[in-house]
């Protein structure tokens, strides 16, 4: 059974059609890469899947573990196990990472009918994940993403993912703005979470990340449609030839 089924998905923002008929099936254990030029709709797709209300779905259907995803509030989707590592993580002055993460973990646990974690149990889990991802000691005391460098913000997204252990993780350009060492650290964190029960959609603009997070499938998104899908070698082809030749094969 598919974990995620996207059928003929159309979405618009501010009266502009952005997604124009996306079809995609993702099974547990798979890693799908979505590549495409700037403005092709990659972040829009991530936003629609996570319930960002700026986007209006005009056609199509999305099923997650057989449930109608588009009917759920963003927090319900998170509770069901969907996680988005944001392209632009949001700064929240006045809220510490520890407060935020605990609220998040407990909200998700509550959704699943699990008991809330007390401060000690929470800290134990979090410290362990911090170690794996080499997060700085003072992270928990600092405000969410406030004053973080670009690389720190991206690592913090992956750290949150590690703590929340989602069923489906969507990574939106987690590699952009990272130097090679930071990217390797992020990839290591992501690879540690790969498992047969978990699926990932890795959105990237460059092939580079896919040397480290090796996908099962690569899809090319252009002008709101998946115009080509293939095995991981497709990413290399794109790297050599760029997106343009592929775009030209799009039927009008």
């Amino acid at each position: 059974m598919n974990m995620l089924t996207i059928k003929n998905l159309h979405a618009r923002v501010a009266d502009k059609d952005i997604l124009r008929g996306i079809n995609l099936d993702v099974k547990a254990g798979e890693v799908h890469a979505i590549m495409g030029p700037n403005g092709s709709g990659k972040s829009t797709l991530a936003g629609v899947l996570t319930g960002k209300d700026a986007f209006e779905v005009t056609q199509g259907e999305v099923l997650f573990e057989g449930k109608n995803l588009l009917d759920m509030d963003p927090e319900e989707r998170a509770g069901e196990g969907i996680f988005l590592a944001f392209q632009y993580p949001v700064e929240i002055p006045g809220v510490t990472n520890s407060y935020f993460l605990r609220a998040s973990v407990n909200a998700v646990r509550k959704h699943r009918g699990e008991p809330e974690l007390d401060a000690a149990a929470f800290l134990k889990i979090v410290k362990q994940k911090m170690k794996i991802l080499h997060m700085p000691e003072d992270l928990l005391k600092r405000n969410v993403n406030e004053g973080f460098s670009g690389g720190e913000k991206k690592r913090n997204e992956i750290f949150q993912m590690a703590v929340l252990e989602p069923r489906l993780a969507i990574l939106d350009e987690t590699d952009s703005g990272l130097d090679i060492d930071a990217m390797k650290a992020v990839a290591e964190g992501v690879n540690a979470l790969r498992s047969k029960d978990r699926a990932m959609i890795v959105i990237t603009h460059y092939q580079r990340l896919l040397d480290y997070i090796v996908p099962d499938y690569v899809h090319v998104l252009a002008e709101g449609r998946i115009v080509k899908s293939g095995p991981k070698e497709l990413a290399l082809e794109l790297e050599k030839h760029g997106y343009d030749p592929i775009k030209m094969t799009v039927p009008a």
Binding site: K52, D73, F86, I92, G94, V95, A103, A107, H111
Partner: peptide
């Protein structure tokens, strides 16, 4: 900010209170 919190599972009204407290 509200969407970021919601996307982490925090219900909207709790997210509003959290940001208000912030």
């Amino acid at each position: 900010q509200l969407f970021y919190l919601q996307s982490r599972g925090i219900p909207l009204d709790q997210a509003r209170r959290l940001l208000t407290f912030a």
